[in-house]
Nucleic acid binder design. Structure first.
Lengths: 247, 247
DNA sequence: CGCTAGCTTGACATTCTTCAACCGGAGTGG
DNA sequence: CCACTCCGGTTGAAGAATGTCAAGCTAGCG
């Protein structure tokens, strides 16, 4: 395994890019000092496994840079991704000793880690952290339910379009991209990982990507860079309400 | 609409059947008094809608008796169930004014309700409630992820077998049934609702139920009462690890 | 230069959906 | 009391969507 040096710096909480969205978002400066004292960073390369389901996991963490995936594997090898963690997302269950899912880095990744037991203890004393964690968990539950609709009821083409719109949106909130007419971003996942996300085979993913490209909904520059000439056209392909269901 | 009288009594918290598993599970007697003062009951008949997605929802609640379903509907009518709430499960998001999903009673149902805003305020002052809510939300997230594996990767037959095993297990924990060799229970869902749960059509549900019956995995007494002669045989049909993945 | 990983494409097989008919019990009105 | 209808459920036949198996492409790298 090549020991390429990862370029993520380790910074003070005050300079942290996820300071205002992560589990620490609501902390005051004294609480932040406490967190600062018990935190440590870990870096992973794209493709590396962080833990396997069933392994001991003695830390919880926030994603600082990069993307991590949670997946489940059946005995015969069928795989389903069940979580996609982007910067500021939280990894791990404070009161659980062992990982429930396989966790892998799908891009180069930096985690801001806390030892599990001390962090769990802090939940009972630090309301700002526990409240924020509750809020984030409820948001993840909503995201999981949206994902369930995708898995259970959407066509392959709708799945791909939905996935692209999700990534485009999350990329926009992270990078504050001006979302003028044209939107562009890099896919953080291989076709195979996309298939695991969407409950499809990688061949079907590839075919539907080609289909969307053929129909002018997306442009492909290389295999991973996506350009969306008109975001509304993409949204029409997702099967979702145009206006998010509010009227 | 016939005004059949529902038979659920309204009781003191001390006598409540979900006292030790619901969001109030960790409360001390003084906290319980506070909850007792602000709670109220609502009853619904099987089939009734509790709220539609987008409606104002000015309460949160615990399911006391019966079963409620959360579902999402696409513009063209495709439906996916995204939550199945059994006794002690929590309904609603304390900091959200409008319902995100359609909520329906799939059986006769009793809710123990709290007005949303006072309950939300209480979360910042009552650690026992907020900690329990966090724990329950994390459990729901795990359940949602298990469900995602089912939706994305399991065959129709595996989906049905998994669903039956889930209901059998939850029924057992609620009713403290001795799970001797034979297990029996009533389905709380129509074939159509099962289809919405499993991401299938109701015809496929029906066919797979017939298949499992033909193969002796289940017995059907009427349309809704299920007898499972050998639970291990059913588990073999779910596609899951026999031992929950621990080894 | 040739290898490999990631990806694309084609041909065929399978699973599940769709459309349609039918069944049986419960409730209803003549 | 009986015919009628409705609802939930079952079954069949045909078709569409997706999976499977196999071949081949391309960029990057040793």
């Amino acid at each position: 395994m090549p020991q390429r040096q990862l370029a993520f710096p380790q910074v003070d909480c005050a300079d942290c890019p996820i300071r205002h969205r992560a589990v620490c978002a609501r902390c005051e400066s004294d609480e932040l000092e406490h967190l600062e004292a018990i935190k440590y960073y870990r870096n992973y390369e794209a493709g590396q496994t962080i833990v396997w389901a069933g392994d001991k996991m003695d830390f919880v963490a926030s994603v600082v840079h990069g993307v991590a995936a949670l997946s489940q594997t059946m005995e015969d090898g069928r795989r389903q991704m069940v979580g996609l963690l982007l910067p500021s997302d939280f990894l791990g269950r404070p009161n659980r000793e062992r990982a429930t899912y396989d966790v892998t880095a799908t891009t180069d990744l930096q985690l801001c880690c806390f030892r599990r037991v001390p962090f769990h203890d802090m939940l009972s004393t630090n309301a700002h952290v526990s409240q924020r964690l509750l809020e984030m968990t409820l948001d993840e539950l909503d995201a999981a339910r949206e994902w369930m609709l995708l898995l259970g009821r959407k066509t392959a083409r709708e799945k791909i379009a939905s996935f692209l719109s999700i990534i485009a949106r999350r990329d926009a909130t992270i990078n504050q991209n001006a979302k003028s007419g044209e939107v562009a971003f890099d896919l953080p996942l291989t076709r195979e990982a996309m298939a695991d996300y969407l409950g499809l085979t990688l061949e079907t993913v590839s075919r539907q990507m080609s289909g969307l490209k053929r129909d002018g909904v997306i442009r492909l520059e290389g295999k991973r860079h996506i350009v969306i000439p008109d975001f509304d056209v993409l949204m029409d392909e997702t099967g979702d309400d145009a206006d998010g269901g509010v009227f």
